[in-house]
Amino acid sequence: MLPRQRLLLKKVIAHSVLIASCALILIPFAMVVLASFRKGNFPPSTLWLNPDQWTLDHWKYVLGIPYRELLNAATGETKLVNPTVAPMRWFLNSLVVSSIASFGIILLSGTAAYAFARMKFRFRSQILTGLLVLQMFPQILTLTAYYRILNYIGEHIPWLGLNTYAGLILIYLSGISINIWMIKGYFDTISPSMEDSARIDGASRFQAFIRILLPMSAPIFAVVFILSFISMISEYPTASVVLQESANRTLAVGAYSLLDEHEKLWGHFSALAVLSGVPITIMFLLCQRFIIGGLTSGGAKE
């Protein structure tokens, strides 16, 4: 074989592998988009809809717009569907909870990472190791402890108890270990000389941290924010225990509830998945460059 033919063959193989992989990724998503426009509640399974199969009912349901559902095609009997809680609400709930909690995570893990990266104190490496190892405890059994703690807090401070976003956010704030490691890893790559000279000029340690190190570390904070945001959006077990009213569910709990009942509402679910998945995905892709940098320099998302 000539070298040029060899190169061509290699290119054909590479492109076919990549195209096949992309197809495996894209086809399920395409099916979900179609399932959200398909009459009836069918699981995502088709890449083609006949003209008479199209409907906007699922989207109306998800957005909370009342519509008439056809019960019997022969008699033309219909039923007015007006959801008491529009599933879109769950997505908004999740946005609120995840943004506030991710912001809180940045505050908590950023300050802690600063101490680990720049200061010397007793038990420094032990605490650092302990944070990561203790986070490995199977969370599922600690749920009852969360329940009890929030229940107790709620008896005295009602807005921070069970069934409140503040309570859920409070629990999410404890997931700082991985983020401390990531931010510390980034801080370690920045030379402390700038902060040192600022301190010689009379800045306090805190000022040096806020004015000099923080602005230089914006990329890693973006990464931590997005990664914790996405993992909180997907978090199911804790959210399902803490928030128990239909109206205050998060996206994960709400989306699962559509498929959990006797009648699996695949159409509604698909519309909700597209509605909420698209903006989050776009946000992630826009920050792609940061994320790849942060993952490869700092540590790991788990």
């Binding site: 998503f29 699981p43 995502p44 996206l251 989306a255 998945a273 992630f284």
Partner: peptide, 26 residues
């Protein structure tokens, strides 16, 4: 190719569960 990482995992998970449905799945 990084889409599965960008889409919230819980949604992908439930979507795939639908695709693997024994009777009606794609």
């Amino acid at each position: 190719l990084i889409l599965p990482y960008a889409v919230p995992g819980i949604l992908s998970l439930l979507i795939l569960r639908g695709l693997f449905n024994q009777e009606f799945g794609a």
